[in-house]
Amino acid sequence: MRTIPIALFAAAALVALAGCSSDEPDAASGTGGVEQGAPPTATEQTFEPGQQIAVELTMLSSADGGRSTSFFSGYRPTIEFEYEEQSTECYAQLPVDLREFPPGETHRIGLECDSEILVHPETPGFRVLEGGEETGTGVVVFTGN
């Protein structure tokens, strides 16, 4: 069996990196190459009905107009997403180590919505509504798929 030295792979990787980043203007656009450390372009993400969405959720305390009791997995509030003003019912799935979600606390949980939802990293926020009243707020957690 023939082996290729690791140094050859390292050299190839350096050549590839050198070709991807340049301070020279791009002839077509007149702009420079890709900046090192520049974040990737943010795009919206689609969540199909029933697909779990990771969120960081803060429930308002009763003193702030929120619930007076905890909720458990299976809680189905209306969620109003900021991006494109989408609204749908979603099923809350608590993590195994969180038996109940008390008012006034923040936790990472899963939401499974009844409708397709589009979320953009620049507009990840949402509101939790019960009877048209806001009882919580949160953001979608993008995991960098």
Rank of each mutant, 00 (worst) to 15 (best):
G66Y: 15
M1L: 15
P121A: 04
G37S: 10
L57N: 12
S21V: 13
E116M: 03
F71G: 02
E56G: 14
V119E: 02
V128D: 07
E112T: 13
F72V: 03
A42D: 01
P25S: 02
F126K: 04
D64A: 12
L129G: 01
F101A: 03
A28C: 05
Q45I: 03
G131W: 00
G66V: 09
I4Q: 01
L17P: 11
Y75S: 11
T3N: 09
A63S: 09
G30C: 12
G132R: 05
C20I: 05
G32L: 09
P77W: 01
G37V: 06
F101L: 08
G19A: 07
G125Y: 10
V128G: 00
L129C: 05
M59P: 13
G104W: 14
E89K: 07
P39N: 02
S115Y: 01
F101E: 04
A7C: 00
R127S: 13
S62W: 15
F47W: 08
F126V: 15
T41N: 08
R127M: 03
G138T: 09
G74V: 07
G74F: 03
V139I: 14
I117C: 08
E100Y: 12
A13L: 11
L17V: 13
P121W: 07
F71T: 14
F9D: 12
F126N: 02
C113F: 03
L14Q: 01
F81D: 01
T88P: 15
R2F: 11
R99V: 13
R76P: 06
L98E: 11
S115F: 01
E122P: 04
A92N: 10
T43S: 09
A42W: 02
Q86V: 00
T123L: 02
H120R: 04
E105R: 11
E82M: 10
R2T: 01
T135D: 14
E122K: 15
T88G: 09
A38V: 15
D26Y: 07
P77Q: 10
A92W: 11
F126A: 08
P5T: 06
A16G: 01
V141Q: 11
L111G: 00
R99M: 06
A10D: 01
T137G: 08
L14D: 03
Q51G: 06
A28D: 09
S21D: 06
Q93E: 02
T135P: 09
S87W: 15
S61G: 14
R108H: 10
T41S: 05
A13Y: 12
E112L: 14
P102H: 13
L94V: 09
A11I: 14
V139W: 04
E44P: 15
L8Q: 10
C90G: 02
T41K: 09
E84W: 07
A42S: 00
E112F: 08
L118V: 15
E85P: 06
A54N: 05
Q86D: 03
